[in-house]
Design a protein around this nucleic acid. Sequence first.
DNA 1: GCTAGATGTTCTCTCCTAGTTAACACCAGC
DNA 2: GCTGGTGTTAACTAGGAGAGAACATCTAGC
Lengths: 218, 218
Amino acid sequence: MTDPIAYLGPRLKEIRMKTGLSLREIARQLEVSPSFVSQIENGKSQPSVATLYALAKLLSVPVDVLFESAGDPVAAPTKANDLEVNRNNFDHPTDVWDSSRARISAVNPNNRSIITMDSGVTWERLAATSEESVNFMEIVYEPGAETNKSGDMIFHDGFEYGYALAGELEVTIGDLVLQLSPGHSMGFDSSIPHRFRNTGSTQFRGIWFVHGHNVDHS
Amino acid sequence: MTDPIAYLGPRLKEIRMKTGLSLREIARQLEVSPSFVSQIENGKSQPSVATLYALAKLLSVPVDVLFESAGDPVAAPTKANDLEVNRNNFDHPTDVWDSSRARISAVNPNNRSIITMDSGVTWERLAATSEESVNFMEIVYEPGAETNKSGDMIFHDGFEYGYALAGELEVTIGDLVLQLSPGHSMGFDSSIPHRFRNTGSTQFRGIWFVHGHNVDHS
DNA sequence: GCTAGATGTTCTCTCCTAGTTAACACCAGC
DNA sequence: GCTGGTGTTAACTAGGAGAGAACATCTAGC
């Protein structure tokens, strides 16, 4: 069995990264030297219980998660890393917001980050956590608006989930066409070409969740 | 605030007592000297992280409960080793539904899979895609209902996102307590201990999205 | 280009403390 | 009385928790 204590360092680093805090900032708040934090993260030294506890508290994480084996031994594949498909041209709602992200994010409706598309489509961010490639948002389609003014279908990595709050939305996924009415919901593999269109005469609003495959990455 | 580390010793003793194990027996299994265990229990010395972890493991208790100020119900097993960590009772909404999952999933409100918890909490599945460790659902908290009847906070791998449709929900995440009203939304790293509670007099309903770290796996 | 400020890392060194051994006092049952 | 169990405390030591300084990168600004 693999010693969980051996993973403590990497695990700490992983969690610290998510918080966006620098090693030196941690050291400052913990009142220890930066070098020591580095030594801990690299497994060259071990903290005392007091330091361990303070560390967990600082990262607002139960002590136990520090012992969990960090994710998967994601031995980075040497090859597949360099480039993805040319999905850059597609504008899909991943990582398009500003950079403010945290481990806990609460948003009230009057204070959302909003992105307005030229095509009568609006995304309002509902939460900005430290997860990348993840978007939780309210989407608004004005009457006549559609995903792509060109009418083309789009596809991208990951999955997409939606819940209709108000109005009607015509959802096309692959061959499937369905009408989303308030209370209806759906989810699909977004590598299937898809398109949304508000064919009705009233505004459509829905709760949307979109994420890529690699929800977290080192 | 009183230092939780000061309570570590007494806490250990308390838990050990419940297991019926002698101090010397602990020392034997831990492969340390009995005197040292005594010193730890009396706060005259502190264990290293390794010893602390081994200790928690031996008592089959999460490390965190060693820091709790004594008095809380520990649910310690009567004999060591016959029970696992009492974290198992935590049910969190991942992979609890039936197996029907597809690449495209559309659900209308009258035809949802529903899980009713004993505590007045209901989950209604909004989509069932082929993704594992992912749940998109409408959650309902009746007045007075809470995540855990015991009042304990829960934590698990992954992230959690919510949008309030109706009613009020008291959300506790780590130290943070916030009131979720209709239109409000939030997201957080679910490894931070959290708890939800409907403190109001009306039913709470919200759109929830929960996923583990490993969103897809081959 | 240079500087000034961040970032994380890797040395070397010191002092503290985790953990030891010993002897201690208390019980049971034989 | 012994012999086995229990927990406690003193004196000691070896090892590692943690500091300090110098290191190599970066990025931003002049």
